[in-house]
Amino acid sequence: MDVLIHLFVGLHIVGIAALLGGFLTQMKALGKGTARFVPAMLHGALTMLVTGVALVGLNQADHHSVNTIKIGIKLALLIVILGLVYVKRDEETVEKPLFGLVGAATLANIFIAVLWT
């Protein structure tokens, strides 16, 4: 079971890397006012959602304790990210505040995962 959990943790990290990488590639365009949500951001957020749900289930099945408050906050942030990216994915440009919100929520999600023990 531990191997499966570690596999999903790795996939979860790949998802966050795609989301953050997509955000960072658009930073130059953000300065010009032409930033947009790229497909990697949507796919990364979806990957995080699926693997995160799987990780909670696998950890509970293996009788590990799960901090439900932490998971709930991370899920709420991810739903905000996913909602914004999904709704605005076809637009040529995204407003700076919305784009910044996605970046801030992504970084908050990373820091919550790493620092909240």
Rank of each mutant, 00 (worst) to 15 (best):
K70L: 07
D90A: 14
T25E: 15
K74H: 04
V53S: 07
G22V: 07
H12C: 15
V3E: 14
Q60N: 09
K88H: 10
L55Y: 02
G21W: 04
L11Q: 01
D2Y: 08
L7T: 11
H64P: 02
L42S: 04
H12K: 07
L11A: 11
T25K: 11
V80C: 05
G22R: 02
G15I: 02
N109M: 11
K32Q: 14
A40V: 08
G72Y: 05
L4C: 05
D62F: 05
A108K: 03
M41C: 01
I79F: 09
G72V: 02
V80I: 07
I69T: 13
A113W: 12
G72I: 12
L78F: 04
G52T: 03
K32N: 15
A76D: 08
M41T: 03
V14R: 09
T106I: 04
G83H: 12
R89I: 02
I71Y: 14
V53W: 00
P97W: 07
G103I: 04
I16H: 12
L84D: 06
T34C: 14
L107W: 06
R36T: 09
P97T: 03
A17I: 08
I112E: 09
Q60L: 15
L84M: 09
V38L: 01
V114F: 11
V102S: 06
L24P: 10
I16N: 10
L46Y: 02
H6D: 13
V9E: 15
V66Y: 04
E95M: 13
P39F: 00
K70P: 13
V102A: 06
G10K: 06
V94K: 04
S65W: 11
G103T: 05
G21H: 02
I110W: 07
H6G: 13
L98T: 09
L30I: 13
M41N: 06
D2P: 11
Y86A: 15
H43T: 13
T117L: 14
M41Y: 02
L78E: 02
I5C: 02
V53Q: 02
L75D: 10
I110H: 03
D2R: 12
M1C: 12
T93Y: 11
A61M: 12
V9R: 14
I112C: 15
L24T: 06
L101E: 01
T47R: 00
T68K: 08
N67T: 00
V3P: 09
G15Q: 00
F37R: 00
A104G: 08
L11W: 11
H6Y: 13
R36V: 10
G57I: 01
K74R: 08
M1Q: 11
T106R: 04
V80L: 08
L78I: 01
D62M: 14
L42N: 07
V66I: 11
M48A: 12
L115R: 08
L46Q: 06
G52H: 01
D62I: 09
R36F: 13
T34A: 14
T34H: 13
E92K: 15
K74N: 09
L58D: 01
G10H: 09
G72W: 03
L7E: 06
P39R: 00
A105M: 03
G57E: 05
G57T: 05
K88G: 07
H64C: 05
I69C: 10
A76C: 10
F37S: 03
T68R: 12
T106K: 01
F99Q: 03
G83E: 08
A35H: 02
M1D: 12
W116A: 01
